[in-house]
Every structure is written in structure tokens, then in C-alpha cells.
């Protein structure tokens, strides 16, 4: 048969065409974590399947790596992801028994920049595409959103911290002021007025409170990087866990300074309202 074939080919003067090169697999992107966990490299060809059993797998070539968008709701879950072109994705997961599987869309969600314009948008769309069933979804109530709850939890913690530290600060100031009882007694006996000493204590309280608040902000800024690096390493994520913004720093200072002054005033007033000799006597 081979001789006949060769003869036939020779007789016709035709040369068998070379076999066409296999088509290049479609390109995909994989997440950094997937690349690392499966020891993959750029240019590798991998098989993906929409079925957990691996049926109807298709080959893809890794064209690039991406860092998944950090999602606090998925903290602790390693994002083993791949990004495919829409057509490749449809071809991969479409049901072959359903001829319309790759052509029909059941619903489309549209998020408007201005939710207030939803009604006008729906009217306009109905006119343009008759037959569409349009439904406006109310914006979800923020109160049940995980991170709003977390925010409130943080607020509660910060309030408790501020109240507890204020009590501690007041106790500390009372002790510090009491240690200066002799000094206040001397100043009063020499002839310094209460108001004069009070202003002095107030100025000291202001300086200490300001210095303390600024030190706290500085410490937070210094620790911010360390905290973020540790938890980003711990959870293998690009999430930012701690962020000290100028607004947060300003808020901290604006709470700390009045509290510090208030504590020093409250503590010193207890001492100053007493007579000079009462202070001098132990």
C-alpha cells in the first residue's frame, strides 16, 4: 500500500502538506499564591477543568502573574486563582448538552454610580430594550455589613480604652501631684497665689499631654509598618491592617490633650484648695 500511495503521489506530482502546528493554548493569568503553591512558572502549560473530577480539561499557558485584590472577608484563605478570558471561561464551564449555555445570560447586575438615579435608569432601559424584567434592589442596610459591625466594635473598644486610661491617668496625676505637696506648700507659704500655681500646673499638664499624645502618635507610626509586615506575612496577603492617617493622629491628639489637661487640673485642684499650712503638715 505504501508503494501504491507513493506512486500515486509521485504521479500526481503532489507533496503531502506538513502537519499544522498544534494551536497555542489560550493565555491565562494566575495568582502569585497559585504560582508559588503549585511551583509553576511563566510559560508553563497547565490543564484546567470546571469539573472537580477533572473531566473536559483544557490546556492554558501561563502568561502572567497577578496579586489578588486583598479581601478582608477572605482573610486566612489562600487565593489560588486564575484569570481567564471570558470566552475561554465559557468554553471551559459551559454544559455541552445545552446549546445555549454559552449564549444566554439569566441576569445582569448593574451598580450605578448614583443610586438615586436608579428609577430614571430603569425607565430609560425599558424604552431601549423592551421585554427586560428590571428590578431595583435597595441598598443594603449598613448595620449588618461585617465591617460596619467591626468598625462599631473598634469604636466600643476605643471608648473603653479611653475611659480606662483616663481613670489611670487621673490616679497617676493625683499621685504625682501629691508628691509635689511640699513644693506647693512652699510656694504658697512664700506668697505665690493659688491662681499662679494653678496656671503653672495647667501649663505643665498641657506640655505633658501634648508630648504624650505626640509620642503616642509617633509610636503608632513606627509600629504601623511592623504590624502590617507581620500580619501580611502571617496571612500571605497584601491587606493593610493598621493605618495611621493624619486624621486619626489629629483625632488622637484632640482627645488626649484635653483629657491630660483635665486630669492634671482635677488632681491639682484637690491640692490647691487646701490651706498652705495644711499642705505643709504631714
Amino acid at each position: 500500500m505504501s508503494i501504491l500511495s507513493a506512486l500515486f503521489l509521485f504521479a500526481t506530482g503532489a507533496v503531502p502538506p506538513p502537519a499544522p502546528p498544534p494551536p497555542d493554548p489560550p493565555a491565562i493569568l494566575v495568582s502569585r499564591q497559585l504560582l508559588a503553591s503549585e511551583h509553576l512558572a511563566l510559560g508553563d502549560v497547565i490543564a484546567l477543568s470546571g469539573d472537580p473530577k477533572g473531566s473536559r480539561a483544557r490546556e492554558f499557558r501561563i502568561a502572567g502573574v497577578y496579586e489578588p485584590v486583598p479581601d478582608p472577608a477572605r482573610l486566612g484563605m489562600v487565593p489560588l486563582e486564575a484569570r481567564l478570558h471570558l470566552s475561554d471561561l465559557l468554553a471551559l464551564i459551559a454544559d455541552p448538552a445545552d446549546p445555549a449555555a454559552s449564549e444566554s445570560v439569566r441576569s445582569i447586575g448593574v451598580k450605578l454610580v448614583s443610586p438615586a438615579e436608579a428609577s430614571a435608569f430603569m425607565r430609560d432601559l425599558t424604552v431601549r430594550v423592551p421585554g427586560l424584567l428590571l428590578r431595583e434592589l435597595a441598598a443594603s442596610d449598613d448595620s449588618d455589613v461585617t465591617f460596619v459591625v467591626l468598625d462599631r466594635f473598634h469604636l466600643a473598644i476605643s471608648l473603653v480604652t479611653v475611659i480606662a486610661s483616663s481613670i489611670f491617668l487621673l490616679a497617676l496625676m493625683v499621685m504625682l501631684v501629691d508628691e509635689r505637696r511640699d513644693t506647693v506648700a512652699v510656694l504658697r507659704l512664700i506668697g505665690l497665689r493659688r491662681r499662679r500655681i494653678f496656671i503653672q500646673v495647667l501649663a505643665e499638664g498641657l506640655v505633658i499631654a501634648l508630648a504624650g499624645a505626640l509620642f503616642g502618635v509617633l509610636l503608632a507610626v513606627v509600629l504601623e509598618g511592623g504590624f502590617n509586615r507581620f500580619f501580611q506575612w502571617r496571612y500571605d496577603t497584601a491587606l493593610v491592617f493598621v493605618r495611621v492617617t493624619p486624621a486619626i493622629a489629629a483625632r488622637a491628639v484632640s482627645v488626649a490633650v484635653p483629657l491630660g489637661i483635665l486630669a492634671s487640673v482635677a488632681a491639682s485642684w484637690g491640692l490647691l484648695r487646701r490651706g498652705a499650712m495644711a499642705l505643709a503638715r504631714r
Partner: peptide, 24 residues
């Protein structure tokens, strides 16, 4: 009042105490 007596002590009266009461 207290302020006037303080002013009087400052200008007209000097005190010496058993425990010295110097500012350390």
C-alpha cells in the same frame, strides 16, 4: 482673701521652718 494675704506674705513677711522647705 487668699490672694491678698499671699501678696502680703510675699512682700512683708518672711518664713523659716523647722524642715527648711527648700525646693529640691
Amino acid at each position: 482673701g487668699d490672694a491678698a494675704r499671699s501678696a502680703l506674705r510675699l512682700s512683708k513677711i518672711g518664713f523659716v521652718f523647722q524642715r527648711f522647705f527648700l525646693l529640691p
